[in-house]
Design a protein around this nucleic acid. Structure first.
Lengths: 343, 343
DNA sequence: GGCAAATATACAAACGTTTGCACAATAACC
DNA sequence: GGTTATTGTGCAAACGTTTGTATATTTGCC
């Protein structure tokens, strides 16, 4: 049951492997007749080109690696789909690794990808990664790098980021406009620029309205649901009447905690999340959130790779993608129909 | 910036590539001294073994392919994680393709994987695939095959399936016990054995209670939310007071439709879904559903691959994984605390 | 010290492709 | 009909590893 090779085809047709290779590659000076007979034989034998040998010989690979923290997050799986939608038609396929938010797994993933000779790596680093040194060290510039969402700005290559600052700014402003007076934030891991920018946007919004920024109601490293519940309890104790959450799972926790404590949402407690996870639309009340446009980011990341790869430029391209504020029920004190505010 | 090879290491150390290879591969008769110096040099140069060349030479690959309909479905992404958890430590990595439920994409994915010389393929076929002919044709037995969830029983290789029959049986029985008298079903694509078995379980449950099976309230090909809404409207017209849904997105649509029509759930209308998607817990009322144990399935699928691969047996192993009925609010007429019924 | 056994390294071929170069056969030209 | 393009194929080397076999070196033994 050994896989047929071009040698098998050549032997069967009494020609040389090189002719077969040329015939299959396209029309590089091969007669129409032989090309047809080669193609017929190939499909008859069920021949599939051996990418390993091909890539090895050509010195280039058709594989692009992707590293994401978790594949089962709506955001990341949609980025993957978005990238795939561009890369597959361009003849590339994706090798996907999960970092599980761990530095060790991220390193291992990078090594796996490099060993697999990927043409490029599209990644969003784990929350444990404090800087890009390990990335620089393992890739050593041997591969085109595209970072998205969570990026280290000192690394070479393209960067696709959300306009986190403006998004968080608008979200917070929206809470202020709805009359909330003491607005805290469940911030994410501040090693990540994305979360820092959200925090900055939050602060700026408060300041722009003459409100004071109070570190007591800023809760870093709060992304998962349980942490959201835990920190919201503290926030409420400290007099918060609203939270801007840098992640939807934290927002979900905030909602559960607030309701658990008998607070009416949104009348007594306001919430805006970030990411537009599918469940935010389905909770009662539904959660207002910022849309990250994952599919679009995937598209752009893939396109950035193709650009770098073809033009061979290592330029520090940075693309900023706008976020949309999706206003649902947890943040609006008078009933609204669903509204979308484009930044 | 060319990547260092074992030849570079060999040259730098004045030894031959073969010694370097042996040194890096482990202790096959290489002196401790050279092994150490090779390792030092390797990490100094940032050497990473070229998997393409290695696999080509050894004739085996460290890559396992996976084909799933959609990566952003909770079920599938968790199966992937489950498989990864077994395969990564075993030295394999995953090449993932999405079929988007389309036959053409599935074929293309298979070809991609075969071309990439994967050691095995773990897959769940698309809803457009009516039989396994294309799979047999493209793989030609050159690769270990493991199917999960949606399987074609006539294909060789291992199969990991849920106990769909018993699950649907229990779900329907549960609705009956809660006093619903005219129970319909939103069934999935019946080309798939998984959905057929769920339908059979549903029918058996009705029959076991002396209730009649009425084709008018059996709605095939209903998996997505919109279809769920649409078909539920018809079901209600036809006098249904409950639905067993073979998918959670359909169940979500059913819930929205029923509430939209002013029906009180669960008092006037009962719903049980399938898959335990994350949102089922978060809707109001929360949706009772069958848990598919995705991570576990991934584990078992990966383990099945490893077994086939090492023992080189092509045996028709079929593993059946039990489903759990998670009783939440949409199906219980008197308040309950969350309960889990193990099959 | 001489021989056998054990140890460490080198040599060379192979995995399946691709591709520059050479060559043969045909076609085109004066 | 001889020279030159043009076209179609073959030859052989190369990509970076791995590995069977051969060779050189060391060790152990009497």
């Amino acid at each position: 049951m050994a896989k047929p090779t071009i040698n098998d085809i050549a032997k069967a047709l009494n020609i040389t492997p090189s002719t077969v290779s040329r015939a299959l590659a396209g029309n590089t000076r091969v007669s129409e007749a032989t090309r047809l007979s080669v193609e017929r034989k190939a499909s008859e034998l069920g021949y599939e080109r051996n990418i390993l040998a091909s890539s090895l010989r050509r010195g280039v690979s058709d594989t692009v690696g992707m590293i994401v923290p978790r594949i089962n997050r709506q955001f990341f799986s949609n980025v993957i789909s978005g990238a795939e939608a561009i890369l597959n038609p361009a003849g590339y396929n994706l090798l996907i690794c999960q970092s599980h938010e761990r530095l060790e797994d991220e390193k291992r993933g990078l090594q796996t990808l490099i060993r697999n000779q990927v043409a490029g790596i599209i990644m969003s680093h784990s929350l444990e990664s404090e800087n890009g040194n390990h990335i620089a060290e393992i890739t050593r510039g041997s591969v085109k790098l595209v970072q998205f969402d969570r990026v280290f700005s000192d690394l070479p290559g393209a960067k696709i980021v959300n306009d986190n600052f403006t998004g968080a700014f608008l979200a917070t402003k929206h809470l202020i406009k709805n009359g909330y007076r003491r607005i805290g934030t469940l911030a994410g891991g501040l090693v990540s620029a994305a979360y820092r920018e959200r925090l900055d946007g939050y602060k700026s919004a408060l300041e722009s309205e003459g409100m004071t920024v109070d570190d007591d109601i800023i809760f870093p490293d709060t992304v998962v649901r349980d942490k959201g519940i835990e920190r919201t309890a503290i926030a409420i104790e400290r007099g918060c009447d609203a939270l801007y959450c840098a992640g939807d799972y934290a927002a979900l926790g905030a909602l559960e905690c607030a309701r658990g404590k008998g607070l009416e949402v949104p009348r007594q407690f306001g919430i805006v999340g970030t990411a537009n996870e599918i469940f935010t639309e389905l909770t009662t009340p539904s959660i207002s959130t910022l849309e990250l446009n994952a599919f679009d980011m995937g598209n752009r990341a893939a396109q950035a790779f193709l650009d770098i790869n073809s033009q061979n430029k290592t330029g520090l391209v940075t693309v900023t993608v706008p976020m949309r504020l999706i206003i649902r029920e947890t943040s609006v004190r008078k009933p609204v129909t669903h509204t979308i505010a484009e930044i």
